[in-house]
């Protein structure tokens, strides 16, 4: 956000450096059920971001002092792999990943029916294989698909996408250059059935009008992401059905 560059992020025709219009998100690919050992999993690509998410649980909560006798707790670990960014990232948790893990855990707690599993832990592991701006949104979008894939009762999925500002244009789904050299970044996650906001952050500089415009675009795009999440889950279950049909014969 604070970077300065002579690079043109949005040209006179309103086209961005990756060829997108201001209200266009990057291509998205979502696949559910990609890991054998995990109870649920999801692989997600958005633009150059590649994210893998695994869910284990509900299972016994460790460490035990974190147990809640009234409901399950969701423990999310967001982790960037060392080769996911241009410089090698130092392995292990840093302050950024602690904050993101906390926010994603809180957002997921809003839709998972945690009261069904007292004392249990639902562990969500998000690995960023390749990062290109928007990894917390990609991670959260993948996590809710992985939770559904694990068969965990939820009241809805959570699609997430960012809006922001670059070269004085309000833009949807910032890429790396816009994130580094743009003027604002606003990650948003919603519960589509009610349009509640479960994750919202912002840094940069936006007026009220710009912010409202950006959020309008992000809400619309989040509903499109939601359709892709549902499609990925339907595909996964149609595959299981096919497989089971084959063994019956």
């Amino acid at each position: 956000m604070s970077g300065h560059t002579d690079m043109t992020l949005v040209n006179d025709e309103g086209i961005r450096i990756d060829g997108r219009r201001c209200d266009e998100k990057r291509p998205i690919k979502i696949e559910a059920g990609v890991l054998k050992n995990a109870d649920g999993s999801c692989y997600l690509e958005i633009g150059k971001n590649k994210v893998l998410c695994a869910v284990y649980g509900p299972r016994e909560c460790r460490p035990r002092h974190l147990q809640d006798p009234t409901k399950a707790i969701i423990q999310c670990k967001y982790n960037m792999e060392t080769y996911s960014v241009s410089d090698r990232k130092r392995p292990g948790t840093d302050r950024r990943s602690v904050e993101i893990s906390k926010l994603i855990s809180e957002a997921l707690s809003n839709v998972v029916q945690v009261e069904l599993f007292p004392r249990a832990s639902i562990d969500v592991y998000i690995e960023i294989l390749q990062a290109n701006a928007g990894t917390r949104c990609a991670g959260l979008t993948a996590a809710s698909v992985a939770l559904a894939d694990a068969g965990i009762p939820m009241r809805d999925l959570i699609p997430a996408i960012a809006c922001g500002k670059a070269d004085n244009h309000v833009v949807l789904d910032l890429n790396k250059e816009e994130d580094n050299f743009g003027q604002a970044d606003v990650p948003l996650a919603i519960v589509p059935s009610t349009d509640e906001i479960v994750l919202l952050q912002m840094d940069g500089n936006m007026t009220r009008e710009e912010l409202d415009h950006g959020l309008d675009m992000a809400f619309g795009a989040a509903h499109e992401v939601y359709d892709m999440q549902k499609a990925a889950l339907k595909k996964r279950y149609s595959e299981i059905e096919k497989k089971e049909g084959a063994t019956d014969e």
Binding site: N110, E196, I197, Q201, M202, D203, F219
Partner: peptide, 14 residues
């Protein structure tokens, strides 16, 4: 607006 942060397990509406 320069920074925002929503926290907690609950949600907020638009």
């Amino acid at each position: 607006f320069r920074a925002m942060q929503k926290g907690g397990k609950g949600s907020i509406t638009r």
